[in-house]
Design a protein around this nucleic acid. Structure first.
Lengths: 215, 215, 215, 215
DNA sequence: AATGAATGAGCCTTCATTCAT
DNA sequence: GATGAATGAAGGCTCATTCAT
């Protein structure tokens, strides 16, 4: 499990090619031949550098997450002096960009969507390093919006409501493309989408705050 | 494309085995031999009854949706004399049951999640017969909750917010199981979840209604 | 080994379909399903009536030869009061018609060509009943044209020279169609072809007769 | 389409085994497994070296023709200072050797006979490289023997008469073996056969020349 | 007698992996 | 260290055949 970007150019090319091919075809349908062809390396390189297709897949997953986190770091949201509402709004926007930005990050979101839908042993590592921190952050921010008296389970459900709205655009993009393609067609639409999700969620949270916990 | 439950016992066993194996391993990783072994039929039966692995997969998908629709019919929600709020609440509950009820429906939700994440040519048929009607129904119900002045695109986003919260529990179950398993562990928890999503969504919609369209 | 045309209509249809399909695709590439479909009978009929694909093939071969001999009987040539030259000319014409007449006999010639190129156990029977008599007839006619002093082997070579010219148009039709299609294109061309072969052969035999045996 | 005899021993063994097995069983009945077993290579080698059974078959055909042309080159007949009669005689002998020499060329003649009787897409290539040149050569030689006044079609028929006599011994060998095996039994007999065909053909052509064109 | 459903052996091909260089 | 040739296991599918009716 070496660093995503070491000094070996062949290894790096292999990794980037793997992210793309795995994202496009899935783990099983992707062939090491195709990956090596795209990376312009020998077909035996996968075993040489990574020790097998599966290992390469796990590394690709970490590489994709690391790339995404580097481009859209969570710290930007946390380290700023924002109100809770602004913080949540900023998080949603950044999270959505991370999920939907296909241009600068390659098709990493498809890769992640696949892994979540059809987890491998690599998922645990991904959750620990990339997903759990996001949950933790929201778990810190939400009480300020919800007021007191809410159980952890209540807060988790709210987190899932927020994340679910965002992930909808990634996991179910195939359905959206077919049923209402206008909401996802252009990259600029991402901003509108994040505004909607922020408004929707803040509206709900505010009302929850006023009504108080029903538990 | 015969009826999901015809009089042919071998065909039916094959279909049910296929739903299970495809759900567990995905289309590519599932082998015809395994499916036939589970159904206790001849390895050539898949070609005999369905004309190939791909055709069997498409039928399995339709079968899974048909089974779910039969157990939790959409008509129950529409044909009743309910207020818009009650109608949405009922829809959410039923939709969630349809997605999460693994006890009486087998592992069909994994099958559906896979197909949406990694669509095949069968998705179009599924959308037309099973998904589009649900969108249409929500598109009729929401205006009563949102008030006037909202564009179709606004309404679609609200629909996606609602469905996204529900689908979160299906698509990202692997993450939920690891990060906050308590919200999904027991079947009875499904009711609590649906209540949460209904409350969350209705709260947001009410506030949208009060604030009016910002377009 | 029943008569080619017995009273069972299913059996007859099967036989005729088999001749056509076997002729078109060869023994191995022809499927019993296709044959049964063309004959509009049950797929199990081949085994029921003939006891297997191979047996059906053997019967088809006999059927095709019988059909050809019925349409162009050898007796017509022998029983007439013709000179040796006229007899040979008539034989060549009839033989060529038998080989090339695809219209009234179905594609039986292709079937025969295949069997000769790639003999099965059925060939011995075919030779005994259909081919040997033709050799015998020529063996009787040729001495009148060649004069005396020729060994059996010499006569056989002349027979083979005559038959070879005729069979060229059957066995190598694929080549003729590509290299010089004009000599085989129309049915009327068959007459010209038979005239050529008769002239060519008689010219050679006459000269052989003048020169005498060189053995 | 690499050279018939390159430096790869496995590839060459595979090709020679393929010629033999395809000749013996035909394209469809020959199994890749059998070919690989005979060549003592891995069952996957056919796809590795040739890209599939069909491609291997096409290469085998070219290989067989190339082998035959190398052993009995057409150039030997053309480049020599022979009279037209000697030229035709030499051609017939060489052609016949090419067709019947099973001792030094393997069973390639059966392979060729099959392909001509039951052509695949490979035939066009074979005709262009191996068969058309022979036609062209005869088309140049025959006018010197026939005299003037003959149409192309007349000349083609004479060519077919000559080739037909030769090919008889290849295509119909199964019949000859059963009806008059003495004319083909021994390799030395090939010389006698070629002398017969040359005599027969030259006699006919001479007479045609004297009589003149009847067109 | 005659059928239609069902079978199982076998084929070609793909692909991740390894081994000698 | 890194490669390219070669492997063998396994998968989907076809098809002649059989069995219960």
């Amino acid at each position: 499990m070496s660093a995503p970007s070491c000094n070996d150019p062949s290894r790096d090319r292999l990794l980037m090619a793997a992210v793309e091919i795995f994202a496009e075809h899935g783990f099983r349908d992707a062939t090491v031949r195709d990956i090596c062809a795209k990376a312009e390396v020998n077909p035996a390189s996968v075993n040489y550098y990574f020790g097998g297709k599966e290992k390469l897949y796990a590394e690709s997953l970490h590489f994709a997450f690391a790339q995404a986190d580097q481009r859209y770091p969570l710290g930007d949201v946390l380290n700023s002096n924002l109100s809770a509402e602004q913080c949540l709004t900023a998080f949603i926007q950044q999270f959505l960009y991370k999920l939907l930005d296909d241009t600068s990050l390659g098709h990493h979101s498809k890769l992640i969507a696949r892994e979540i839908t059809d987890p491998t042993s690599a998922l645990d590592g991904i959750i620990a390093t990339a997903i759990a921190p996001q949950f933790a952050m929201l778990k810190e921010v939400l009480p300020a919006l919800l007021g007191s008296g809410w159980s952890d389970k209540d807060i988790y459900r709210c987190i899932l409501s927020i994340l679910g709205q965002c992930l909808m655009y990634m996991h179910s993009r195939s359905v959206i493309d077919r049923v209402c393609p206008e909401v996802i067609a252009t990259p600029e639409e991402i901003n509108r989408t994040s505004e909607h999700i922020a408004s929707f969620s803040l509206a709900a949270l505010r009302q929850f705050n006023q009504e108080g916990s029903q538990a």
